[in-house]
Design a protein around this nucleic acid. Structure first.
Length: 442
RNA sequence: GGAGGCGUCGCAUAGUGGCCUAGUGCGCCCGCCUGCUAAGCGGGUUGGGGAUAAAACCCCUCGAGAGUUCAAAUCUCUCCGUCUCCGCCA
């Protein structure tokens, strides 16, 4: 949810942001109107409710006056007054009920209208659509396989040779975009998680194994039931959702809480399965495990004071880069354009690793600064010397297992189908230096 | 899954239809007193919203929602959480 103060005081800023995202700027004026309606309805209710309380409060003593009346005429006049006040009170009760209903409707409408607005983009973010990203840095050199004298195999082939990835059986058991990691493939996941967790812990993150199944409040508060709703798995019978990222349970961890500003930034690193329906991506990345309905991921999440969010965002990016550096992968860092930001993000950096068989850089990790957008919805606030205010939330991928495996196998393959294990990963992989083929080529 | 108990301010507790404008203790904050500390004394201390130049002020908030009533922490219903016992189970 965006800041109502900004909406009221500087609506043009919000309109410009909507436009830059390629979204409807008219939603801003609809939200302004709904907000004005709400305030009018609140004022009307407050007024009639205050009146009702006043009258109602007088009725108790009137009952007493009737009981204690000294004589019949005093009793009759007290009773008359009581009857009169009761009539007024009954009328007021009807008015209150009506005003309350009006207010509730106006409230719901205003909430919906404001919730339809995406986060106000960071002015530093490049303006444009998906392809208008800015490359901030390029690290490492793609290998020249031609010069090395062999054609690189793709991760599906290598995975088959190593006995690491079983896509056919994944499809048999669960359908398309499913897989099994087997043998060194399974061990590779543990090694990657070990390396990622180690890096995170050294940087002050609290490791978390979060629930991957959450209630509607958590899913909605995180902002995934808006434009991303079609990609979320919902369990109809239980009204629960399968998370698409640990960002959801990590963000919701402090839902409805007020955190001490001195304890910030609070950093958590979660390891969880991620479930994605991949609606609207039919025909995209159909081969292998690059785009799947389920994968595991190590995700960083940070709660921090708003004025430190930019710096924290840079730190998250730095840790993402350290991880890719450790894996010795060539990659580039991009500043994602306004039209390609999620609804919650004000700014986003992606790290894209070179995929040799695709001859291009593909997204491996991503870090978003959601400013106070998520925390307002989730009611996560901080208390400092200035009082209570929403805080900033940020998230960043440390390791999306399947895509990392794709990049690792393809970039570190050798002509005989074996794969080099990068030095940093070996301590988490039984000091293994090379993964050798165990299956014949098909 | 069955039976029962319990959800009140940071914590602990009082409150069974109108003196509740939710009391008290602890903790915390400010002040007084005091060689210093402790004690003592006085005041403050849920959160959200409306109004305002800022206030005063007003409304909502006793797990959530609905209902009864002129009036609900209090009565009724539904849901959620939690605890105890029984059953089942990785």
């Amino acid at each position: 949810m965006i800041d109502l103060k900004v909406l009221r005081d500087d609506p043009q800023r919000v309109r410009d942001s909507q436009t830059a995202r390629g979204e409807d700027a008219a939603l801003v004026d609809a939200a302004l109107e709904a907000d004005a309606n709400r305030r009018a309805a609140v004022a009307a209710f407050d007024k009639v409710r205050a009146e009702q309380k006043l009258v109602s409060k007088g009725i108790g003593p009137l009952h007493g006056a009737v009981k204690k009346a000294a004589d019949d005429s005093a009793r009759a006049s007290a009773q008359a007054e009581l009857d009169k006040q009761m009539l007024i009170a009954t009328d007021l009760a009807d008015l209150v009920k009506a005003a309350e209903a009006t207010q509730r409707d106006a409230d719901v409408a205003a909430d919906a209208a404001v919730a339809a607005l995406s986060n106000v983009i960071d002015p530093a973010a490049p303006i444009g659509s998906e392809e208008d990203f800015v490359v901030l840095d390029t690290v490492g050199e793609p290998r020249d396989f031609l010069a090395e004298g062999f054609e690189p195999r793709d991760h599906v082939e290598i995975g088959q040779l190593l006995g690491a990835i079983d896509i056919e059986r994944g499809a048999k058991v669960s359908g398309s975009r499913f897989y099994y990691l087997t043998g060194v493939g399974a061990l590779l996941e543990f090694a990657l998680v070990g390396l990622a967790m180690d890096l995170a812990q050294r940087n002050g993150f609290t490791p978390v194994i979060p629930p991957a199944l959450v209630n509607p409040a958590a899913m909605e508060g995180t902002g995934f039931l808006g434009q991303a709703a079609e990609n979320v798995y919902r369990l109809e019978a239980d009204d629960m959702y399968l998370v698409g990222t640990a960002e959801v349970p990590l963000a919701a961890f402090h839902m409805d809480e007020v955190l001490d500003a001195d304890s910030l930034p609070l950093r958590y690193v979660g390891y969880s399965p991620c479930f994605r329906r991949e609606a609207g991506s039919h025909g995209k990345d159909t081969r292998g495990i690059f785009r799947v309905h389920w994968f595991d991921k190590v995700e960083m999440f940070s709660f921090c004071p708003p004025d430190q969010a930019d710096a924290e965002h840079q730190r998250l990016l730095t840790w993402e880069r350290e991880f890719l550096d450790a894996l010795e992968l060539p990659y580039q860092v991009i500043d994602v354009a306004s039209g390609d930001l999620g609804a919650s993000a004000a700014r986003k950096f992606d790290c894209e690793a070179w995929i040799p068989t695709q001859q291009r850089y593909r997204e491996l990790t991503s870090t978003s600064n959601c400013t106070q957008f998520q925390s307002r919805r989730l009611k996560i606030r901080m208390r400092d010397e200035n009082g209570i205010a929403p805080l900033a939330t940020l998230n960043g991928t440390l390791c999306a297992i399947t895509r990392t495996i794709v990049a690792l196998l393809e970039n570190h393959q050798r002509s005989d189908g074996s794969v080099n294990v990068p030095a940093a990963l070996r301590p988490f992989f039984g000091n293994r230096e090379v993964l050798e083929p165990i299956n014949p080529a098909r």
